[in-house]
């Protein structure tokens, strides 16, 4: 039993060590700007722009549900305009970043791991090395930079969408006026709500891309190994998003 626990703990430390080691490789790769700048633009489109629809879709439905559940919870005792407060706070602080993060862990993380893993087994990564490229600068840096930059943007759009759909629900399905909704929205609002959410999403983007790259590049042989790396990347990113979410709550709130 104790052995199992120490083995797990050691495994965890090794994983953290690998992420740290990879981060130093990435920062070395960052110095090789001619290699990664143009590629980063391509990744920004693939990782960022193409993720907007799914993020907006999730946010729209979350807004509806939040508004309805808030009104259901507040019957009588709490004034109805608190619906606005709850929708705003929940979307900005938690559900915007975390739900988007989880969805993109699947979309982006899996994509990176599968693509790099396939490149590894078909020796495309080796080919890059023989052409005197640093695969980290060529493959990992563009993805990591793009995800880190684009996640906050995608999440900001999701926040707007979530609050908007909450407002539309409140006005159309609940007996709430726009004035009341906005009053609730402003009630405990602080600017920190937004940047806290955006800092979180930035860290999620960085994390998802890093894990995808590590898992993808460490594939050793065959299709099965690519499949495993992809699953691992998604599961690990999802778990780490929740851990990181709790971490930010403790540190920043």
């Amino acid at each position: 039993m104790l052995e199992l626990v120490t083995a797990r703990a050691r495994g965890g430390l090794v994983a953290v060590g690998r992420v740290g080691h990879f981060l130093t490789d990435v920062s070395r790769g960052l110095r090789d700007t001619p290699t990664w700048t143009r590629l980063t633009l391509v990744q920004m489109r693939r990782i960022g722009a193409e993720s907007v629809p799914i993020a907006l879709f999730i946010a729209a439905f979350t807004g509806v549900v939040l508004a309805l559940q808030a009104s259901y919870t507040f019957t009588g005792a709490v004034p109805m305009y608190f619906v606005g407060t709850l929708v705003g706070k929940t979307i900005m602080l938690e559900l915007g970043p975390v739900l988007t993060g989880l969805a993109l862990a699947g979309r982006v993380g899996a994509n990176i791991a599968a693509e790099l893993g396939t490149m590894r087994v078909t020796e495309q990564v080796d080919a890059l090395e023989t052409l005197a490229y640093d695969p980290i600068a060529y493959l990992a840096v563009p993805r990591v930079v793009a995800a880190t930059v684009m996640f906050p943007i995608v999440v900001a759009l999701a926040m707007v969408m979530g609050v908007t759909s909450g407002w539309l629900t409140a006005v159309n399905l609940l007996d709430l006026s726009t004035v009341e909704f906005v009053r609730g929205l402003k009630l405990f609002y602080q600017f920190k709500d937004i940047w806290f959410g955006l800092v979180k999403s930035l860290s999620f983007g960085l994390l998802i891309a890093l894990i995808g790259c590590i898992k993808g590049l460490s594939v050793s042989r065959g299709a099965e190994s690519v499949g495993r790396a992809t699953t691992d990347a998604v599961v690990l990113s999802a778990m780490m998003i929740l851990v990181l979410d709790a971490f930010w709550a403790v540190v920043l709130l």
């Binding site: 078909t122 495309q124 080796d126 080919a127 090395e129 023989t130 640093d134």
Partner: peptide
């Protein structure tokens, strides 16, 4: 790293399965 890169630039490598970037 730098010297290894310089060395690789002097060597052409033809992979068994081509290893083209697809």
């Amino acid at each position: 790293r730098a010297r290894l890169m310089a060395l690789r630039a002097r060597i052409g490598y033809v992979f068994q399965f081509a290893a083209l970037l697809d």
